[in-house]
Amino acid sequence: MADFTLTAEPFLGRFEQHYDDVKLREIYDVAVVSAAIPLRKLTAAKKAVRAAFGVDLPEVGLSALSQDSAMRILRLGTDQAFVVFPRAQQDTGAEPHIADLLGGVFYTTDQSDVWVTLELSGAGARRALERICPLNLAPDAFGIGAVARTSMEHLGTVIIRTCDDSFLLMSASSSAHSFLHAIETSIANTA
């Protein structure tokens, strides 16, 4: 019997495309760990985040980079945060690593293969999102580090503003190609 070797490929095959003043690319090998705060454990959770990442647990709607800038903590709701970081960093699996870092205070779940991540950047990034994203993305309304969960073209999306004209968009990997198509269509419609 022939030997087969399976090689994992990113959801969108390392997609990267430049449009006039917009660049869209897939960010692959991203580890995503959901960290839910148990009931009445907010104080302990804040302490654990400070000890693990050297920064405060961000307020709902904000994200923060760990002190060494290796991980991004997204506060998506009162009881939930995501920790996002490059997957290759940990060989032992993302979830046990984060659970360990946080001292077991949070309920942690590995969601690495659940999300596809796109980076939309360039001077036209905000314009490219204006019809597909229901949020107000004006620079003073959605500041650097802001994060929100919303829906774009009926697909659940997490949007993060990482710098002046750069956004990360995370959506379900099971509909990765539909999501890419929606974003590309939005770029074309607003060009």
Partner: peptide, 11 residues
């Protein structure tokens, strides 16, 4: 109350 104005389609 926490997130500001959001479209009703999200709810």
């Amino acid at each position: 109350p926490l997130l500001g104005p959001r479209d009703a389609a999200e709810f």
